[in-house]
Amino acid sequence: MDTFSLLVVIGVALFFTYTNGFHDSANAIATSISTRALTPRVALLMAAVMNLAGAFMGSGIAKTVSEGLIETPTGGNGMLILFAALVGAITWNMITWYFGLPSSSSHALFGGLVGAALAGSTAVYWDGVLEKIVIPMFLSPLVGLGLGYLVMSAILWMFRRSNPQRAQRGFRIAQTVSAAGMALGHGLQDAQKTMGIVVMALVIAGVEDEGEPIPVWVKIASAVMLSLGTYAGGWRIMRTLGRRIIDLEPPQGFAAETTASSVMYATAYIFQAPISTTHIITSAIMGVGATKRVKAVRWGVAKNIVAGWFITMPAAASVAALSYGLGWLAFG
């Protein structure tokens, strides 16, 4: 196997992780910044550190990505499939970042994998795609919306007799913890997705055998790149999550972050399902906001975000398939 091809795929996978970091940094800290619980740079540094720690908390999602979605391709064709999948995901990340749209880097990657695999005549495990990707894609936002509403309703009831200013100060402090938990969950979920791609590349190259533990250097490289991307910050998307959906206050920010991080931990450890951190925090913000009144949520903005969710996988798959075709014409 051409060592150069392996190094290129690993390099592009790590660059995807970097784009994932700055694209999705808003997921962990937008609410804390918008409520002024944390300053932007402190929030970004905290998120980067917690992303790094979260990447070492498990490997179940990496296994799902590397073994459960497509048949592991072989030879140069396999490297081209992985390269095209990553190009599709990175392209969609950059487009949605430019427009400030909080779409899912995870689903961009999954769409890229499926599109490139189909273009490269590689089997897609549709049962795995349905169970691990499609069903969670629909269920997790509903769970986030419902739980966000319930958690915020419970907070409003428990603190109904509290001094408003004192409660605001308390929740501003509590948001430091909930934002850290959100960033830890982001590292747990998203760093493993890149690990799965790198492991596939190593298996194709014959460097690793399928089913072996993830090499430590792969974990470190993926975690570091995700953290660096997070620290770079995704300010365009941060404004959308922090202000454009609803004007958040500290209790609402705490409720949204607590809801989203709880769902991320549960899906990672119980179901080993790689859910979208973007989907879950956005839907939690909507659910929390609806406790004010339904019209408090800017549903026009929310509608555009949800529409972006539905086109992410097909769009990334199309770009990946096109990239595979161009690569095949050039190098096949």
Rank of each mutant, 00 (worst) to 15 (best):
L86W: 04
N77R: 14
N93K: 09
F56Y: 15
L69C: 07
T74I: 14
L45N: 03
F110I: 15
G68V: 11
T31V: 09
G100H: 10
G120V: 07
L82V: 02
V42P: 10
F110W: 08
G115H: 09
V42H: 14
F22L: 09
I81C: 14
N93F: 13
T72W: 14
S121W: 14
H107D: 05
V87G: 01
A48S: 13
V114F: 05
A48R: 05
T91A: 15
A55D: 08
S25T: 10
F99M: 03
A43M: 03
V49N: 09
S106C: 06
L82S: 01
F110R: 02
L82H: 02
S25I: 07
T39M: 11
A89F: 06
E67D: 15
A37I: 04
G120K: 05
I70Y: 05
S106M: 05
R41E: 06
K63L: 12
A37G: 11
S104F: 06
G112T: 01
A53Q: 06
A85Y: 08
T72H: 12
A119C: 11
G21E: 01
A117P: 08
G68K: 10
R36P: 02
R36V: 00
A89C: 04
H107L: 05
R36G: 01
A89K: 00
L69I: 12
N27Q: 02
L45A: 14
A84S: 15
G78Y: 13
G112E: 02
S106Q: 04
L52N: 01
A43S: 05
A55N: 07
F99T: 00
G111N: 02
M46S: 13
F56P: 12
I81D: 12
R36M: 02
H23N: 10
A47T: 08
V49E: 11
R41W: 09
N93G: 12
P73I: 00
S32D: 11
I95D: 01
K63D: 12
H107Y: 04
P102Q: 03
L113Y: 15
P102V: 03
E71K: 09
L101I: 14
L69D: 07
S59A: 13
I61R: 08
I95P: 04
V42T: 14
S104I: 03
T91Q: 08
I61G: 08
A119R: 07
A84P: 12
G60S: 11
S105A: 08
G112L: 05
H107R: 01
A108T: 03
H107W: 03
G76W: 15
G75R: 11
A85Q: 06
P40G: 02
G21T: 00
L80K: 05
H23R: 02
I90Q: 07
G21D: 01
V65W: 10
V65L: 14
E71H: 06
S105L: 07
G111W: 08
A116C: 13
T96S: 12
A89M: 03
V49D: 11
G21W: 01
L101T: 11
T74D: 15
V87P: 04
G120M: 10
L80Y: 09
S66M: 04
G78A: 09
I33R: 12
L109T: 01
F83D: 00
T64K: 00
I29K: 05
A84M: 10
N27D: 09
T91C: 13
V114P: 07
